[in-house]
Write a protein that binds this DNA or RNA. Structure first.
Lengths: 214, 214
DNA sequence: GGCCTTGTTGTGCAAGTGTATAAATAGCCT
DNA sequence: AGGCTATTTATACACTTGCACAACAAGGCC
């Protein structure tokens, strides 16, 4: 007597995205291996069998989900750089600020980032996806740094530029983690302020309208 | 005719440590949920049933493993601070250097760190273990920073001190991650050099025997 | 309106999971 | 030497997992 479940046919792209989103949600909640096909399907309001219609297997689904996550993260981060009519220094500050506030500072995103990255050394596919995202990010940083220094009439060589980019990248990453893991320990905007000061110190820029301590 | 497997009785503490080590190895290789009791037991050269004799269940085993990991990490990190006959500034530099080289910079440790932390927001026990380790670390940083600045006749207030500690912590964490994930992209000692320069810039210390760029 | 493609469901299955518990034996104590 | 006990093995069990496949029906097409 159990009637068969009603369903609607969604467009292929829509379904795939829904499944990926449900996968990320499940991973946040239950971990990588703990996110089962049935859990994912339940969250996508679909039965488990359907997943196999869109993805060859669980592994591929997870990989696509991670790729989508990394893509979204770097896209959001870099979006802060496209500002018209702004000095290089303002753009750099805006970049730091954007990366140290919501939605990039977010416990859910961090959970996903850490969960997937934890398996990077055992899964070359994940490792490569991360590497590409990371290098893209760092290149963006390096480009802005070059602009900032050029505006200050300074001509660092390639090695110095690279070191600045690595350090600034580390500052942003480190503060991002602190914010994601313990957001309530910081007042709004505090992380961004710390980040901007640290970045400017790294580049040897004189503070603008602020006084140095003492 | 299968003879029963031979075995030796190990001391309790020894067995517990072996099991914890085997657990960490399995987590690195297969992930949190992928590390099954049988895998762990195999690695510890023991049968699965024995685990239940030392730990109430899998969850408790994982928690103890994580606690052991965090303890080892913070212990190693802080060990670099106990130096006799060294100026505060030298101690700070040694601290940064120690944290940006092996064995702290290590792909396996990073994998574990990320894997466990990925579940911190869903598992309060893990979250607390991390929080305690992190705060202890940051307090150490803050103490050294205070010494360094005092030696330079500077008297930052509590807020400035806190901000410096947060920033320096971020620098170390961020560079640590870069080193763990892409160690081969950096020449030996390069990360430590970048870190020391960034930290000194953050604190507004004049470089010692090096020239500024340009 | 009826058909036909294919997105979607439901069921089945072998392998593997954590846990429980009985059976064996290693090694200390007297 | 021989027993006692706690450590260790081995087996059993209920349940979940990823995957395979057959049945079904949603919705475009003529």
């Amino acid at each position: 007597m159990n009637a068969r479940r009603k369903f609607r046919r969604e467009g292929e792209e829509r379904r795939r995205q829904d499944l990926i989103e449900a996968t990320l949600d499940s991973v946040v909640e239950h971990g990588l291996e703990g996110a089962t096909l049935r859990t994912i399907a339940l969250r996508a309001d679909v039965t488990a069998g359907l997943i196999r219609h869109y993805f060859p297997g669980k592994e591929e689904l997870l990989q696509e989900a991670y790729t989508a996550l990394v893509g979204r993260m770097t896209e959001q981060a870099k979006a802060a750089l496209v500002m018209e009519d702004a000095s290089p220094r303002q753009r750099l500050a805006a970049f730091v600020t954007a990366n140290l506030n919501a939605p990039i500072v977010d416990a859910r995103v961090f959970s996903l980032w850490a969960t997937f990255l934890g398996r990077a050394n055992a899964d070359p596919t994940l490792a490569r996806a991360h590497r590409e995202g990371y290098l893209g990010f760092r290149n963006e940083v390096e480009a802005v740094v070059a602009e900032v220094l050029a505006a200050e009439q300074r001509k660092p060589d390639a090695g110095q530029l690279r070191h600045h980019a690595i350090a600034i990248n580390a500052i942003i990453d480190g503060l991002w983690i602190e914010g994601c893991l313990a957001g309530e320990m910081f007042s709004p905007g505090e992380l961004a302020a710390i980040g901007i000061k640290a970045v400017e110190a790294e580049l040897g820029l004189a503070p603008l309208e602020q006084f140095q301590e003492k």
